[in-house]
Amino acid sequence: MSISLFYFVAFLSIFFALLVIFAKNPVHSVLYLIVTFFTFTIHYILLNAQFLAIVNFIVYMGAIMVLFLFVLMLLNLNEGSIGSKSNLLKMIGVIGGMCLIITLVGSARVLNASEPLVLQTQDLGLVKNLGKVLFSKFLLPFELSSILLLSAMVGSVLLAKRDIKQV
């Protein structure tokens, strides 16, 4: 049961990821993407990365997906308003993606990393352990990421704001 749980969740991830890119309605795409991210959360729990599971749940499924849905509702796109690419271009895109899969799988086979994944220390992905690493070894990148978020906030407000002189 334990191993097959991974394969079941992996199957669900791939299935919903395919639905994301093939759904006609963008709102359905967003909803499928939320389910895909939920399966990723289950993967993190299976890897005992509890901190990442919680962050993935809150940040991705909560904040980012709500932002996507909000913008979709703001833009009021109808289902048929944007046509799809021609069948030839779609075919070329899918074949190109398959070639990418084949190339990467071939290189992964050369890597030959077939040993089973074993959790050596139980508390590897817990908040306590990660916090110690984050605030000692990665303190400077952590502070820099706050500047990144601040500049992103200022930039997005500046971009989305209407120009006052034009109005």
Partner: peptide
């Protein structure tokens, strides 16, 4: 549940999801 899943199956899963993303970028117009 983690015990026994080979590392290259995680690599395969990531490759497939990544490629689905690449295909999505190429075939959609929205």
């Amino acid at each position: 549940a983690l015990q026994g899943v080979p590392l290259n199956h995680y690599i395969l899963l990531s490759i497939i999801i990544f490629s689905i993303g690449v295909i999505g970028v190429m075939i959609r117009r929205n």
